[in-house]
Nucleic acid binder design. Structure first.
Lengths: 216, 216
DNA sequence: CCTAAGTCGAACACATATGTTCAGTTTAGG
DNA sequence: CCTAAACTGAACATATGTGTTCGACTTAGG
């Protein structure tokens, strides 16, 4: 019996040690594959299984042993990335302090990770079952969404446009900025500031000045 | 001699009647193919030549007779779209009146056509020769870029961020809005207004209030 | 009406991607 | 050290896409 497939359970989010007890060997390869797939997919959506296996430094058969199909792999990578992004977002403490400050922290800390998530999600959108997608999508988007809602309640963010559009605006510019870094148009260390300078005015309630010397 | 290829010259932009004099028949098919390719490509980037031929209502061989390779076809479609977009942009008279108003006109008239151009360009970016790309890219982007520069000179648009980023911001949100229409999150007739409401504050010089009752 | 231009489907060669199977080798871990 | 788990490359079947060739049919247009 060559290939194995121990009832693969490519750890969802929190490394629950499952029943079959994989060998350390296998465990190591799985994470290597996951990492490689993450890189390959974000670099070019059409990345082949062969390319991913090669990047991970494992045989193609080994890849299929753990992830029986491209679809399964893609979903696993998506899960993995979401968990990662979620952790990083928590670091920014999006529920603490004024919403504007929280958004600023969020942008500075996690623009990179959020963009990666977006890219992956776009691929998944093309290749995965729409039903499965919904969950992943909402799960990740909701963090930003909640922050925006809080900002609206504080009066810091505008309410004259659909909430959904505000979320889209954030993600869209985030992605654009990350892409500009890739092409060399923007520098790593300026991204967050540029994003903040663009997003805050766009999210602020219209007509509302910076509230300096309001009294005439 | 079955297949033809009369020295194909799939009219660049301005329908210059070329030497070989195609039959009306062929001419009709070429535009049908161009249209079909435009639709197919914007709907899904991986659209196959077979699918395009089928959509155009012609045989696969006919397609290849006029466009000897996928690359050539893609380039022709890109040319076609740019010409179309350019014409629509002109309708908005982007060089007349205040830059802010001009941008507003531009958004209302051509968000749809500009988004289509962007989608096509993204595909071309993945499949075409970078050298060829540059021309197309600059040619189309420059219209928006020029408008933004003019706005900067008027003091209507901010100068504290790279010009390139402002262009990216416009295109990026444009695309996001169009995508939201596709998914049903945004309505056709509200798109331009939403875009305007989001973009103008983002482009306005920071700190600058709406300049109403400036004298205190 | 007659001919060359054009179109058509079928079939071919070629390349690439997805999964699978097999037989041989390495390695983790008791 | 010994065994089962895991990894490996090679080869296979299958599917899909690209581009070409061929012979037969249709049609534009003089």
């Amino acid at each position: 019996m060559g290939t194995t497939d121990t009832g693969h359970q490519p750890d969802g989010a929190g490394e629950k040690q499952s029943a079959p007890r994989r060998r350390a060997d296998a465990e190591r390869n799985i994470t290597a594959i996951l990492d490689a797939a993450l890189v390959c997919f974000t670099e070019q959506p059409q990345a082949s299984m062969t390319a991913i296996a090669r990047t991970a430094g494992v045989g193609r058969v080994t890849l299929y042993a753990h992830f029986p199909s491209r679809e399964v792999l893609l979903e696993a990578v998506l899960d993995h990335t979401i968990a990662l992004a979620s952790a990083v977002i928590d670091t920014a403490a999006p529920n603490e302090g004024p919403a504007v400050d929280a958004l600023s922290r969020l942008l500075h800390i996690s623009w990179h990770v959020l963009d990666r998530h977006r890219r992956l999600f776009e691929i998944a959108q093309r290749e995965l079952d729409p039903a499965v997608l919904r969950q992943h999508h909402d799960q990740a988007m909701s963090r930003v969404e909640q922050l925006l809602i809080r900002g609206q309640q504080e009066g810091a963010f505008r309410t004259d446009l659909p909430l959904n559009w505000l979320v889209t605006t954030v993600y869209s510019l985030l992605h654009a900025a990350a892409a500009d870094v890739n092409t060399g148009h923007l520098k790593q260390n300026t991204v967050a500031d540029v994003l903040e300078a663009t997003l805050l005015p766009a999210l602020r309630p219209p007509q509302a000045t910076v509230r300096r010397r309001r009294r005439g």
